[in-house]
Design a protein around this nucleic acid. Structure first.
Length: 234
RNA sequence: GCGACUUUAGCCA
């Protein structure tokens, strides 16, 4: 599958029993992911159904890997279809599962659904963590909803979570891409005050943002500042 | 018993 040849992988999979190897859900899901990755959606789905009918059901970790492949492609609807099937067989979602779904929904532009899923996490008796919020914040930023994203920064703090570098860098980048360098700067000041140390992600976003705005002088200043902190250009 | 699975910039393939 890693070399983009899912059909070859499938032949191997089918040969496993004759080689005396254990034929299991992990192997199945690996091949299924490969098919989805190459957009053989029908084959992938058929193989999934096949796996279940043979009595192999992935555990949640194995399942998460599979839907992560789909989330990256923005195919949440397919993930839901698969999820409903394993859910019926007693597989319960964990926080990773929700985080992956939130990512998939955002990628597809289904932002309000992603926000609603945050409540879904709580309904399932789970507690959203920093990654949950970061995922949502990132999704909002990518769809230019940076102000909303910053609202969730406050929400997470109210929930007793501490924003990390992912959180700050994501929102700073969101503002930079919108040309709202002032907002990015304000947030950076605030974050620095709270102990955040800007890294290469932060500087890269700022420099790109300033450059896009035609503010070459400040871009150079920020670049010099990054060098001064021992960060290496790449 | 322990582990597996989720989130941020740009560049390149």
């Amino acid at each position: 599958c890693r070399t983009n040849r899912p059909h070859a992988a499938l032949r191997l999979l089918n040969n496993m029993p004759s080689q005396g190897c254990e034929f299991n859900a992990v192997a199945y899901c690996t091949v299924i992911s490969g098919f989805y990755e190459q957009d053989y959606r029908a084959e992938a789905y058929e193989l999934f159904v096949n796996m279940l009918s043979q009595g192999f059901c992935p555990n949640i970790t194995t399942f998460n890997k599979l839907i992560h492949t789909l989330a990256k492609k923005g195919d949440v609807r397919e993930s839901e279809k698969l999820f409903n099937k394993v859910y019926k067989r007693g597989v319960s979602p964990n926080l990773f599962t929700f985080n992956i779904f939130i990512q998939g929904l955002c990628k597809k532009g289904l932002l309000s659904e992603a926000v609603r899923l945050l409540d879904g996490v709580k309904r399932e008796g789970l507690t959203p963590d920093v990654v949950t919020y970061n995922t949502l914040i990132c999704g909002l930023c990518k769809k230019s909803e940076v102000d909303k994203a910053e609202c969730y920064l406050h929400t997470m703090v109210n929930d007793g979570l501490e924003p990390d570098g992912f959180t700050y860098n994501t929102i700073i980048d969101g503002y930079c891409k919108q040309g709202k360098i002032q907002n990015a700067d304000n947030l950076l000041k605030d974050a620095t005050y709270k102990g955040f140390v800007p890294d290469e992600f932060t500087y890269c976003s700022l420099i790109n943002g300033l450059w896009q705005e035609g503010d070459i002088d400040r871009a150079m200043d920020v670049f010099a500042e990054a060098l001064g902190k021992g960060l290496k250009p790449s």
